[in-house]
Design a protein around this nucleic acid. Sequence first.
DNA 1: AGCGGGACCTGTGGGC
DNA 2: TGCCCACAGGTCCCGC
Length: 291
Amino acid sequence: MPELPEVETVARTLAPHVTGWRVEAVDVRDRRCLHPLTLPLETLAGLTFADVRRRGKLLLLEVRRDGEGGGGGPMVLAVHLRMTGALLPHGVETSGTADGHGLAPSPGPHTRCVLTLARGKERQWLFFDDIRTFGKMLLATPDILQRWDFWRELGPEPLDIGADELARRLRGKRAIKAVLLDQTIIAGIGNIYADESLFAAGIAPQRKADSLKPEEVARLHKELQAVLQQAIEQCGTSFRNYRDANGNAGAFQNQLLVYGQGGKPCPRCGRKLSKATVAGRGTVFCRHCQA
DNA sequence: AGCGGGACCTGTGGGC
DNA sequence: TGCCCACAGGTCCCGC
C-alpha cells in the first residue's frame, strides 16, 4: 500500500536505474493499467527518461526527446501504484548475448506492462507489476496533466507545509482522519500514516476537524512530519507486498505503533487498542491515549 | 456538504 | 484438511 514514504523510496531507488535510458519497445500486456487520459504508451518509444520524482503518491518519470528539440514539450509518465503496483527493473545486459540484445526476463502473471530500455549496447526491462490491477499509468503532456482533476486538485506536500498552513487546511465537519486521507487537502497520506500520526499526536481519528484546538493541530503537524520522515528513512512500510525498485522491503513496519495492531496492547498505556471503521477505513487507535 | 456504500481487483487468513 | 467468505484499501461514482 504505497503511500508517500514508499513512493518516495521507489522514486529514489528507481531514478538511478532508468535515468538516461531510452525506451526501445513498449508492451502493454493488460490495458487496465492505462489511465483513461493517457497518450498511447507506444509514444514513449525513442524517448529517454530524464529523472524520477514523486508528488503525493504519484511517481513521475520525466521523459525527454533524444537529440534536438523540434517541437513537442516535455512529457511525463505518471504512475499511481495504488495498492499493489510495483516498478521493477530487470536484467541489465552489459556483455550481451549472441544477438547482442540479451534475453528479456519472463513476465509474471501480474506483469501489466513491459518497457524495453536501451543505453548504447545495454538492454534492460522495466516491469510494471500489479496484483490487484488498481494501479494506473498515464503518459501525459503538461496540458493533459492539467485536464486531470486528481492532479489539478492535489493538495500540498505534507513535508513542505508549515503548521499554520496545515491548520488552515484542516477545516470542516468531517472526521480528522477523513480529512488527512483527502488528497486535495494534503497529498500522500494513506491509512497507515493517518493512523500513526493521529496516535502520535494523541488525537482520536473520529474527532471533527473543526473541533481540533490550535495546540492539537500543531502537535499533529509535528508528528505527521516526524512519522513521514522516519518512514522515509526506513525506506517505507512493507506490510504485504510493497518493494522498492531494487526489490527490497522497507523496515518501518517494525516501528508501527497502531496500524495493524488492533487488539494488542497500546504501546503507551498498555490498554487494548481499539478497531473501528472511520472514513470507511479500518482504523486502529487507543481510546485512552487519543482524545 | 459530506457520508455511506458499491465497484474495481486478487491474495490471504480466519472461522467453521 | 478444506472450503467459503470477509477483509485489505486508493480512488471514483452514485444516491441519500
